[in-house]
Amino acid sequence: MSAITSETTPAIVVPPLAKSPGYWAGVWRRFKYDKVAVAAGIVVLLIILMAVFADYIAPADPTRSSMLRRLRPIGTPGYPLGADELGRDMLSRLIHGARLSLFMGVVPVFVAFFLGSIIGVSAGFFGGKFNTITMRTVDVFYAFPSVLLAIALSGALGAGITNSLISLTIVFIPPIARIAESVTTQVRSMDYVEAARASGAGSGTIIRVHVLGNVLGPIFVYATSLISVSMILASGLSFLGLGTKPPTPEWGLMLNTLRTAIYVQPWVAALPGVAIFITSISFNLLSDGLRSAMDVKG
């Protein structure tokens, strides 16, 4: 006799059940109570909106310069945040700069998230020699300080936005692959994966049903914490002349060009740095909050 003897009718109707508030509902509930993380999330959202609607929000053309109004202080009529070394409106430039800065922060991390996850999850799941070879190769890249690696790659590929994106992506693959590998190794040894294997499931099914759902969350949270690093590195590359080219507004590049004005208008010169700081710390607090909200026990 077997447990599976249900007389099957051609059309099986499964009566729906009231789903209990699932995992993500719990995450959201815990996240809501984390005031710092919610505030950071709102700041990130505002920055994204600001970048998207820059054309409508910015009071002036970010590239229109005026030799007469160079290096105006904060609060000058018509220039609420002052003017830069070419007399361009700082506020408009900061708003427009958010576009490229965010782009440079988010895109390499996302691409690296996909590639690094594929590398790390497969290395972690299959283990053995495959794991050793893959992870040691990743370690070679990991051995370089990320700033040096980014500069070296950008330098080798040549200046420009695309090359900056490629070099930043390469910089972020190793740390993400590492995290993915260690989380996957942990999940792989869980009893529910063993039980799935004992049910006769193949590797593909096990990865799809039992591994990905449990590893992508933590990897994603880690990746969001890299967005700030990516923004800073991208700014650094622009600062060194390896990223964006003037007159495109980008925070790192603005910081570079205003460097000479630091004794004349220190507050104005510091503004792009403040923007980078606020954005990156918001991303970091957001990912911290996500991490603790996703941590369920019992």
């Binding site: 789903k19 209990s20 699932g22 995992y23 869980m190 009893d191 529910y192 063993e194 039980a195 799935a196 049903v209 039992h210 759902g213 449990n214 369920v296």
Partner: peptide, 8 residues
Amino acid sequence: ASLNPRLT
């Protein structure tokens, strides 16, 4: 540990 936490 023997139940996948993400599955009902």
